[in-house]
Design a protein around this nucleic acid. Sequence first.
DNA 1: TTATATTTGTGTTTTAGAACATAGTTCTAT
DNA 2: ATAGAACTATGTTCTAAAACACAAATATAA
Lengths: 233, 233
Amino acid sequence: MLGKNKVVTELSSSLPEIWRMLTDVERDQLRHNARILHFKKNELIYLEDENPRGLMCLFKGKVKIYKSGVGGRSQIIRIIRPVQYFGYRAYFAREPYVTAASAFEACTVCMIPMELIEQFLRNNGDLALFFIQMLSVDLGIADQRVVNLTQKHVRGRLAESLIFLKESYGLEEDGATINIYLAREDLANLSNMTTSNAIRTLSNFVNEHIISIDGRKIKIIDEERLRKISRIG
Amino acid sequence: MLGKNKVVTELSSSLPEIWRMLTDVERDQLRHNARILHFKKNELIYLEDENPRGLMCLFKGKVKIYKSGVGGRSQIIRIIRPVQYFGYRAYFAREPYVTAASAFEACTVCMIPMELIEQFLRNNGDLALFFIQMLSVDLGIADQRVVNLTQKHVRGRLAESLIFLKESYGLEEDGATINIYLAREDLANLSNMTTSNAIRTLSNFVNEHIISIDGRKIKIIDEERLRKISRIG
DNA sequence: TTATATTTGTGTTTTAGAACATAGTTCTAT
DNA sequence: ATAGAACTATGTTCTAAAACACAAATATAA
């Protein structure tokens, strides 16, 4: 088992923003209430309509936040990378979750009861501002996303997703392969298109020497062109 | 000119949530820094890429928040009714506005410098939570909107917009006419479709006796059916 | 390992909705 | 009050993308 010191080290280095803003007493409370959870690949983290319980901080792995829409068609709303926070919006809105979260790959998550967070930020302006800023940034992204997903064409949407994945999870050692292992279906759900169209458009990009693919691994060959396709829609 | 007492009365009754949470000193500061602005029909309130300056509270009138997308095509992101707050997200995100706001009809707006609001909420947990909750609710709506606008068909999207307008601005005295005077183009931009399609689909709804129209006035005849069309997409 | 399920790839068909064209109508500003 | 602009209406054409179908390739589990 982990000793107490190990837990302290892990929290203070892994929750840098929040940890820094807390008093000693608060840090102690956090230490006693935070739980580290592990999720296997494709495991569900929370479900639509469930009641939110904790603020999650992704320490390791990759997470998708998604929604099932008309006829159960799934739409990926956002993706989470280490070290980002998620799962807190619904609690603050006093609603059940309107999205679900699941692990793209094996994940380590730190879960802190929302009641504790709320108590902290009532007395801690910096922490409150931290959450206000996160929510504000996410709302801006969501507004932008509405326009991108509804107005851009298939090629533009897919190009945008590829760039987005690169910026979110980075590249592998070769400096070209996007560091995520995604099924075509997930790529489609991220880009608001059918799986067929994701496959077809990906093939087109390969033929045009914009990317190359090896199974699920995608290598970006001509990023400038990809960005242009994304920009003009 | 308005006397001081008049301003106080107006603020305390018009900004109920915020006013209630403030101390006497804060109320005094608010009183001295809040400005009442008037906008004519179709006047711009703020523009995309501008720097955010104030928290706006809509006292009277109707406002649209919109974004111009691919090829300048405009998308209405949300609409504001009295008494709602808007224009603060960008400041908190430390970004320029990503949306523009304009008046559907003559408006009265109270503008409070964001610096003052930030100062207040650093020391006022309730006020911080108030903003966190607003942002959280709006983010949930934005997430839902992504799915609705991308997955529902034209009929579903238009039906949804009509219900949304009814719930936002209510009905006129006849208990059926939606209390807003909107161009077909705005209706289209709200529902993510071309103006032609908004006009055509509106006509179809009339033929199916779901609504009736008299110029820009829309009367809901069969709300249950409208809701069903919205639900199934 | 082998069997079964899932994912990927491609061709074909169908369709929703955009684009375009044009005319009638209603605002709005002088 | 009237001219011009903007909005509304409707028909027609065109196209992007969904739907469908099926084969091949991979992944997963017994």
